[in-house]
Design a protein around this nucleic acid. Structure first.
Lengths: 231, 231
DNA sequence: CCTACAATTTAGCCATGACTAAAAATTACG
DNA sequence: CGTAATTTTTAGTCATGGCTAAATTGTAGG
């Protein structure tokens, strides 16, 4: 299990180290400052444990940490986080496409597998999938060198009525929600016609594959869409 | 990662627990009594560590352990060992067939993956492979209910000269040895004609796919063969 | 600007499971 | 059958990384 980032790092990283780094990355992406309590809530440990771990990550130069001020990834830390995220998303797609595992069940499995696959297995998986760019939820898969490109998109809840969009990304890892959305045919790449929006952030009326559905406002906020090219 | 054996077991098992149980199973299969030092050597820890762990496994009713007398699997312990072994061998075959990973590189990968795949992923893998009976080395894959059938076979080093055999199993996990055997075309299911044997456990002359090779006695001892049905 | 409240960190505890060194039991041989 | 050599276990240490409770720091409102 020689890792790509192995050369840059003093001591080997546990699954937990990797989970923390991944969490910090994802929280940083959300924009706000990453406090230890936000981090602890995200990973499901107590704030004290997060402080503890963050200190260790700082010693390894994976994060910059100043007491009471929150935490930031270093370049090396970001490399690690992106590698884990690459593993995760490649695995999700692989499980979905190669083993027909429904998109609402790939996350938990990938969550464990991501920490134990070797670089060469990662490569083999990427090759067998044709070097894909997004996972089954439309989340971008970082490249081997750590680049990640976010396709421009907007939440369906803010889109214009009367227009047709392509669904590019579903911002949820909640199994039940995903299963529900799946029953409506709402997967990335599907076309959605936005028929009507109730006022005051009310539900949304949309048409997918000729069938009309009502969707709660907050649910529509999870659906990132892009206008059709010729629209 | 709800395990099949979960219902029978008090506390969850770590990867290490599973590795110990698997090792005990494999050593038991070899026939001799499983001492803690044999066990410790097999798994690569000190004898003291093995004693330590064996005590814990005994508390969990996974093994029967009597001081200075070695260790034996209970029925539950054997169930766990066979489940891990099933994971391992299914994964080896899956990596080999689905991702074209050479047979001399599947072992180490499977060694880590076996501890983290869910029962449902195990099922999906087994189904996608058509419920196979053996892994790429010819080792039998235990069934979901814990049955395992050893095809009758004999080591090539004890076979009769002048006859043709089917290679059914290669008893080695050493990467280099496997790679070497692979270059000779020696994979399970291949036909081997045993041409000649040097006396006093000397090398063996055999023909594989029309090509003659000399093989050291000990290497031939790793090749389990069965006589051709009509021979 | 000072106090009260919330967020954060520290201190100290626990379980896990490796290790070494010393003690105890077993085995083997004269 | 008793003693020496070997095997095995025990005792005690360490690192990891979670936890709770207490102390500290930051922040917001009067």
């Amino acid at each position: 299990m020689t890792k790509n980032y192995a050369s840059e790092i003093s001591s080997p990283l546990s699954s937990n180290h990797e989970d923390y780094l991944k969490a910090i990355y994802l929280l940083e992406t959300r924009g706000q400052k990453v406090t230890n309590s936000a981090l602890s809530e995200y990973i499901g440990f107590t704030p004290a444990s997060a402080t503890n771990m963050v200190k260790k990550l700082a010693q390894m130069d994976l994060v910059v940490y100043e007491r009471y001020q929150g935490v930031t990834l270093t370049d090396t830390g970001r490399r690690v986080a992106l590698e884990v995220l690459r593993h995760h998303r490649l695995l999700e797609l692989f499980l979905h496409k190669t083993l027909d595992i429904p998109w609402d069940r790939v996350h938990d499995e990938a969550e464990r597998l991501e920490h134990v696959i070797s670089e060469s297995l990662e490569d083999a998986i990427a090759a067998s999938l044709g070097y894909p760019k997004v996972d089954p939820h439309g989340d971008p898969i970082p490249s081997k060198s750590g680049e990640i490109n976010h396709t421009p998109s907007l939440p369906l809840s803010r889109a214009e009525t009367g227009r047709t969009y392509t669904l590019v990304q579903v911002l949820s890892h909640d199994n039940e929600r995903l299963a529900y959305l799946g029953t409506l045919g709402l997967h990335p790449d599907v076309e959605i016609h936005l028929q009507e929006r109730a006022p005051f952030d009310g539900p949304v009326l949309l048409v997918v594959a000729g069938v009309a559905h009502a969707l709660a406002f907050e649910m529509a906020g999870l659906l990132q869409v892009a206008p059709l090219p010729a629209d």
